[in-house]
Design a protein around this nucleic acid. Structure first.
Lengths: 153, 153
DNA sequence: TTGTTTCCCATATAGCCCCATGGTATCCCG
DNA sequence: CGGGATACCATGGGGCTATATGGGAAACAA
């Protein structure tokens, strides 16, 4: 699970360290999937599992459904698989750097099943908006009935 | 269940002992989840179960639902998993210490399914406010009309 | 070649893990 | 009922290892 947030620096070779905690969330795979966010000025990333979920979701649409093609175009077409070097870093290509406006520092934000990479200042502004939307929707977080064996503690 | 309150000290390495009673509430897991409170100057914490409930609730929303992203941003982006050492302590990072204004002492307050960590003086102030608010609203505690069959006895 | 990308090695720092100690409450046995 | 022994708890400190980041050599493209 991608949890918490971290800031790391981008070196002259456009490399960034994926935070160690996120590397563990990826598993022992030595690569991450990265793509430009559809609606925010940031990069999104995830491990193989989420990509497979996208794939499975799309598979439920008809093979020639234009909506399927459009989704595939965006998700599969824009995503790239970045290999981690020995130190756990990836190279961000020019397009990714551009969409997020990242230059010297990169803010990694965990979202559970995926993460985002922001230009730190841009993230601060976005955070306020996100919080407002989250607050409006806190009601979506439902408590689950406890199982009896849990109550035993 | 996180019950009652305790005070423990923060050492030079920013470590605090999680009260033994709270550790039992966490179960045999060796880590706690901590995050800055949404609306109070304090830290909130819980065991894995609460986090899993959040995760499960969010998983019921569509993969790209903006509400899902916003909730994840707030909950997963701000929370961190802190490992307990042998003595049952966790390290509080600079951001958490800052939001709660904690330096030398930390007040742990149990809230049932989660707990809070306060700077002791700040908590005293907050407690006074809470009490005042409660006193003004005692009228909200209405007696329920007795059912006729109860009166019959 | 020259510039660009990919891989590998190097290093300082900071965070983590383990060991140690003193104090306190509890239990048990006399 | 008293005293000691014991288990648990809070707290202190040191050493080691993982992590982040810099730099260079080798492969590749133009």
């Amino acid at each position: 699970m991608f949890l918490s947030s971290f800031e790391s620096s981008v070196d002259a070779k456009k490399r960034v360290s994926i935070p160690a905690a996120f590397r563990k969330a990826i598993g022992r795979a030595d690569s991450v999937f990265l793509w430009p966010s559809l609606d925010k000025p940031c990069i999104e990333g995830a491990g193989q599992r989420l990509m497979e979920e996208f794939d499975a979701s799309m598979s439920e649409l008809d093979l020639m459904d234009p909506r399927r093609i459009a989704l595939a175009n965006y998700i599969m077409g824009e995503a790239r698989q970045a290999k981690l070097d020995e130190g756990g870093r990836v190279v961000l290509d020019a397009e990714l750097l551009a969409v997020a406006g990242v230059s010297e520092k990169a803010k990694f934000v965990g979202l559970g099943d995926r993460f985002q990479i922001w230009e730190p200042a841009a993230y601060e502004g976005e955070k306020a908006k996100m919080r407002a939307l989250a607050r409006e929707n806190l009601g979506l977080l439902k408590a689950k009935p406890r199982r009896p064996e849990d109550a035993a503690e």
